[in-house]
Amino acid sequence: MMPPERRRYSRMLDTLRPVTTPELIELQLHPAGLLVRSLAWLIDMAVRMGITMALGIPLSLLGKFGGGIMLLVYFLLEWFYPVLFEVLGGGATPGKRSLGLKVLNDNGTPIGWGPSLTRNLLRAADFLPFAYGIGIASMLLHREFRRLGDIVAGTIVVYRDALGGLPVIATAPPLAPEEPLDRMTQRALLAFAERASNLTPARQEELADLVPYLSDPQASQTRGPRGAARLVGLANHLVGRQA
């Protein structure tokens, strides 16, 4: 039987997709949903229209030959614009790149020609009955927001950097804890120190008061700061900063 802690976690709602590497390291992919992807699609649409117009005006001067070339351009843009960018451009069309998205295989590896062609050729199926009706429904219903093309090709659209950079811990003189801290406590301290700079001072103290034995150890005769500042100091010690 699972301990209550674990059971609670398993029903916690989130959008992540865990992927386990052969080395048994668990990675979290952050699947991207319908809204942000529709915006990326709009940007790509604008780019494609721009290319079409930039080529169409000079080509229209070339008569039927220009028309022929233009048809080829339409064809290539329709079917290969996403494929080329996804395979050669790090998994992202310009629209996806500008919104911080990219396409991966669902095991977290970079996407190759086969899956990319599959997912983009199947746009035709997602487009049915008109204007991506099926694709929209599929993305809303699927727990990882995949459209039919994604499901068939085994691909997934994820946020490249869901949190926008690494967390920063405010620098403070490091403080060594009086007793060794277990991993849960270490994590909690680091989380507190990462977020503290965005909280009001009063809220920081309120949080620090939850763990008085860490933030305000009166029993032992310790010196140094108290409260939130003390927790940040402990976190600085944990990440290995030197005094």
Binding site: L34, L140, A162
Partner: peptide, 17 residues
Amino acid sequence: IELRPRNAWEALDLGVR
């Protein structure tokens, strides 16, 4: 729902879920 720092788009996605 799992509380964690998420970007705004992820929050919208979570709404769908």
